[in-house]
Design a protein around this nucleic acid. Structure first.
Lengths: 219, 219
DNA sequence: GTCTATACGCAGATAGAC
DNA sequence: GTCTATCTGCGTATAGAC
């Protein structure tokens, strides 16, 4: 990995851990094994580094979501995979980042800071949610054509419900120690099974497809 | 309002807007109409001011939630009121704070910073979610005794689902411009109506009881 | 490309007068 | 209780050598 990627890699770690303001370029430099001014050779300034780092995370998620449904033709399967991709991305990111400390990590927090501080990231994050929203809606609409999904379902509000459920669970899991990790799978399963024409009445547990989303690759 | 309350009032505004790090004591002092060192007469330091401000918000929400269900004896009504209280508190806070700028505001973000930086607030926020969780569970359990709520329902996971739905919608609403404000009411209505024994099949819109939760009172 | 040295500004905090 | 003046440390950023 070249220095530039090392810096972004480390920056993401720090930004997720400490936020934008509490992350100092000196700390990133030390982590990478260079001196502070060297960062300025690769990036214009701290803002530039932050914007690129955040954009990289967003691109990675979108890529993983797209890949996850590539070979899937059932609406149920697609929706499940999209939701699982989001959850697993967050979990993998936490697992990778949360090595030393015992602090809650949450991408939402990063997104919020990003949207607040930098208009370009506000737009980018909005595009990210638009992408997720559209992808979920498309899965439902094709499912309705196949008679797999109930025709009365409103795809837009259901997509919003799924996204809110996922983001909400991720947020609460980092703030509430009593949180039960499995409950998000149950919730998503409930929402999805309510969409389907062959809705099995017994509330089975959501099958957890552990197709791990690798974050160990280059940033 | 005395100076100390004026400072907390202003501090909450700034902390919600700009976060802990971007809020300077000088700005708060200017807003209140005093000089920076005067803040140190009322508060030990910036951390102290932040901890007291955040605690005040949490206490206010808990108080409003408690008040909202005081005269309610139906489980459905209680659950609805708890959820609405949370949504309205956030909305009222945003409306009160979001006067000048056009920036997303979200308490979750404040909670996250608070939990990350100050162990005492991490505990306090955990207690806050425990309170909400227990209050919702109690409403469901009494509903099950009255045969108002289906006995198969798992109160714990349903409470978690409701909280996640609310927090998730609030988060997304501040990051996604396409977000439809009404969808949260629909989602909560769906979850609640699935709990009830006299579950009406037609998905009616969630009745929006606009009992405004005042935040204009003293902090 | 990376370094040492350094300028610069900002914000938290204190001393001490009134 | 509130003020003016001031200290202090930290973090961004640049200059310029190697």
């Amino acid at each position: 990995m070249d220095t530039k990627n090392k810096i972004i890699n480390s920056a993401i770690k720090f930004f997720l851990h400490l936020g934008y303001d509490n992350t100092s370029l000196g700390a990133i430099a030390e982590d990478v094994g260079i001196k502070k001014p060297s960062i300025y050779y690769h990036f214009k300034n701290k803002e530039d580094l932050f914007i690129l780092s955040t954009s990289y995370i967003l691109e990675s998620i979108e890529e993983k979501v797209t890949q996850s449904i590539e070979n899937s033709y059932s609406a149920k399967d697609k929706i499940e995979r999209i939701c699982l991709s989001l959850i697993e991305f967050n979990h993998n990111l936490s697992a990778q980042i949360n090595n030393d400390y015992n602090k809650p990590i949450n991408m939402i927090n990063l997104f919020h800071t990003a949207a607040n501080k930098f208009p370009i990231l506000k737009k980018r994050i909005n595009d990210y949610y638009t992408f997720l929203h559209k992808t979920l809606i498309n899965a439902m609409l094709t499912g309705q054509k196949n008679k797999e999904v109930l025709k009365e379902i409103d795809a837009k509000s259901t997509s919003m419900e799924l996204l809110a459920q996922i983001e909400g669970h991720l947020v609460i899991s980092s703030l509430f120690s009593n949180y039960d990790t499995s409950s998000i799978h149950q919730s998503i399963f409930n929402i999805i099974s309510n969409l389907l024409t062959n809705n099995e009445p017994s509330k089975k547990f959501f099958k957890h497809k552990t197709k791990t989303l690798s974050l160990n690759t280059k940033w």
